[in-house]
Simulated scan of single mutants.
Amino acid sequence: MAVRKTPIRRPSKSKKSNTTFKSTTFYSLVFFGVFLVVLYSQRNALAYYLGFKTDKVIVETRTVPLEKVLDTHIEKSFGIDVSEYQNKIDWDEVKELEGGYPIEFVFVRATVGCDRKDYKFKKYWKKAKEKNFICGAYHYYRPNENSVAQANNFIENVTLVEGDFPPVLDIEKLPKEQSLERLKVGLRRWLEIVEKHYGVKPIIYSSESYYTDFLRDDFEEYPFWIANYSAFYEDIDDEWSIWQITENAEVKGIKGRVDVNIYNGTSVDLKEILIK
């Protein structure tokens, strides 16, 4: 007599498990979408933290065309400043600003904070020298990091010789973890260490508002390089050695926008500030 086999019933997926899976997938996608939105919104802060950008907060609102600013100061010396942010530069093409204004000097970012180098510094420094530009190197100062370590970072990576600009301290941010007085102590310590090493007084770079509010009265013995992209000055303040007039210029040979600077004097006067 044959034995009838009872068919094996396979458990079917319940509606509840399907609903749970769909719900989990939906919330995962929502979370990932929110994460991407937050990441995009904080891209500048992240770039600053990693040292790729200087996180400038100056908004360019000048109504006077750039050419008029340059024409007004046509007897002065013009230059640019670059960093790894200008990712591609054909130095054979870099000769003049848009409009035919000759470029005489180039500043290159060398270091950031305690331990980071601008990864384009050595290449850009060498190329700018080969093209006979007057060269200067600058350090982007991070207020909440040790000033001695920052000074040593710059010194270890930058060699300056006769005919170069003095070293430059770029300070744009207010501290989050220290008082303003402690910041000034750190800045002065950096300046003194670097001056002792190179034998020349450094230049301080900052925005005009930062300079007016926090630096002018305490560091008046130093040359200043001031950024103001909104004002139109027919006469540059005597206390300014260099005026950065825009961050949105176009220069043949450089992909993207470039900072433009006016030295407060002629090409002959410029030699007075260079390392002897």
Rank of each mutant, 00 (worst) to 15 (best):
K196W: 03
K196S: 11
K196C: 05
H197T: 01
H197W: 06
Y198E: 11
G199W: 14
V200Q: 15
K201H: 05
I203P: 09
I204S: 06
Y205D: 13
Y205S: 13
S206G: 15
S206K: 14
S207E: 10
S207T: 14
E208H: 13
S209N: 09
S209K: 12
S209A: 11
S209R: 12
Y210A: 13
Y210F: 15
Y211G: 14
Y211L: 13
Y211D: 15
T212C: 08
T212A: 14
T212G: 07
D213Y: 14
D213L: 11
D213R: 14
D213A: 12
F214A: 00
F214E: 03
L215D: 06
L215H: 11
L215A: 09
L215E: 07
R216G: 04
D218F: 11
D218Q: 13
F219K: 11
F219A: 12
E220K: 14
E220C: 13
E220R: 14
E221I: 10
E221H: 08
E221G: 09
E221K: 12
P223L: 06
F224W: 02
W225I: 06
W225K: 08
I226N: 01
I226R: 02
I226E: 01
N228P: 02
Y229K: 00
Y229M: 01
Y229P: 00
S230G: 08
S230R: 04
S230P: 06
F232V: 02
F232C: 01
Y233W: 08
E234L: 00
D235Y: 02
D235S: 04
D235G: 02
I236H: 04
I236A: 05
D237P: 07
D238G: 01
W240H: 02
S241Q: 07
S241R: 07
I242A: 04
I242W: 08
W243Y: 02
Q244D: 07
Q244A: 04
Q244V: 04
Q244N: 09
T246K: 04
E247G: 10
N248K: 07
A249I: 04
A249H: 05
A249K: 03
E250M: 04
E250H: 03
V251L: 03
K252S: 05
K252G: 02
G253W: 02
G253Q: 00
I254G: 07
K255R: 06
K255E: 10
K255I: 04
G256V: 02
G256L: 07
R257V: 01
R257H: 03
V258Q: 11
D259S: 12
V260H: 13
V260W: 11
I262Y: 09
I262N: 10
I262G: 10
Y263S: 11
G265T: 11
G265Y: 13
T266K: 14
V268A: 12
L270W: 03
L270H: 08
K271L: 00
K271C: 00
K271H: 00
E272S: 15
E272C: 10
E272T: 15
I273M: 14
I273G: 06
L274F: 10
L274D: 07
